[in-house]
Amino acid sequence: MHPPDKDSDLYEIYLLEMATTSQQSNRDQISSVNPIQALPDQSAWGPLDALPGNPMMWVLIISELMVFGLLLAGYCVKFIGDPELFLNSQAQLSRLIGGLNTLVLITSGLFAALANEASKAGKTSLTRGFLAITAAFGLLFLALKFSEYSDKAALGISIETNSFYTLFYLMTGFHAAHVVFGLLILGLVSRFNSRENIQTACAFWHMVDLIWLILYPVLYLVR
């Protein structure tokens, strides 16, 4: 269709019609697109959304791995500097108690994982039962750790004895503090037992377990 002459009376009517047609066309285009597709493909946590459970817990797990990795790097530097001191100091540790504590934490990890499975199935009382067993093993771990620290204190060994014990108490003490915090979280999620809470608490507990799996052979066995 040819537009009318600009000087004619029809030209204004033509412009009005063209504007109305253009607006209608734009509206049709927008409504034909799914509102979700119209938004760019984005999520709040980016790649962390690909991990199971609360992404914030994975931020913590990655941070903890980095912190303990750096502490272990410091241990390695000191070990190379004075291997004799480290071997003699390590010989005073109870390797058996360390090993038993590893088995205790692995078993607590199993019950945490079973609690997670029970929570998936919506079995609240079973979930609570498994969490209670997890916490009981956590308490056993702390009792063994306390007994170990007491034995060392009786021998006059402390965090200031030498660089091996400084790093030993720093790493195992920091880890034990995580176990205490984990027990508090397990208690909280037994009360506020939403699916996400249980999954997040169990992930924290497994992270504590993971750190100990690395600490035990390095601090107690490698010589």
Binding site: L87, N88, Q90, A91, Q92, R95, L96, G98, G99, T102, L103, I106, Y216, P217, Y220, L221, V222, R223
Partner: peptide, 21 residues
């Protein structure tokens, strides 16, 4: 695997063993 670790690191030995494994 933990028990293998303990055996490999002589964890059952008592008495302050410092000998290299």
């Amino acid at each position: 695997l933990t028990i293998i670790s303990m055996l490999s690191g002589d964890a059952l030995e008592t008495g302050g063993v410092t000998a290299s494994i």
